[in-house]
Design a protein around this nucleic acid. Structure first.
Lengths: 104, 104
DNA sequence: CCACTATATCGATAATTATCGATATGTGCA
DNA sequence: TGCACATATCGATAATTATCGATATAGTGG
């Protein structure tokens, strides 16, 4: 469930940070932050949790359809899945938003 | 945290149902479903969980600012807090939505 | 004040989530 | 092939959430 993935503050924050990788993450040797995404170890430095925890967080975000991963060499780069995020936000709006309200 | 309140499927569904009380809940002796809201026992019948669980769910939704309660006699009526819901949806959009993207 | 109903709160336990260290897997390079 | 690094997965434990029954609180009517 997507909401569960987002209900963890760190995961939510990672997703937020990934909107502006250059702003929140230090550059990495290989791979472009914007085009390719941010690799696990760079994210880990920022959140200061164990490597395994961060890796699991990213897997969860990916299963929720909120990020995508790409392997380049020994690194796995994660970046936002904008389409998936949009789909989720739209659906949430449909499910709990006020909906059509006739002002007649 | 609002997302945690919504991360439970039943609570999410209750919030959804409360958009159309007449459709999802049986009429109650006292109080208008639309104007006043739906009382705990009526919601409880629908979700089929214990009274204490339902009461706690509603309290959580209220703490999250997603519903409001009104006491009428011995009943407590819950209805959506549309302003609070809107605020939450807008904030979520700000926090994880794609944001301004210059197409220049 | 007393029963009766509706709701809230408390305390306990089961289920899930958070988080870690250890280890496995995958990749680049000598 | 074998070491070094990045990431993933596993297994364990701590922390949080789900859920209940019991009980407390509040309001209604006699």
């Amino acid at each position: 469930m997507i909401l569960k993935a987002l209900a963890n503050p760190i995961r939510l924050q990672i997703l937020n940070w990934l909107r502006e990788p250059h702003r929140y993450f230090s550059d990495q040797e290989v791979g472009d932050l914007d085009a390719d995404g941010v690799c696990v170890s760079v994210i880990q430095r920022r959140v200061n949790l164990s490597q395994s925890t961060v890796s699991q967080y990213l897997t969860e975000l990916q299963r929720a359809g909120l990020v995508q991963s790409k392997r380049i060499g020994q690194w796995t780069y994660y970046r936002r899945d904008e389409a998936g995020i949009r789909r989720f936000l739209d659906e949430l709006e449909r499910v709990i938003g006020q909906g059509e309200e006739r002002t007649s």
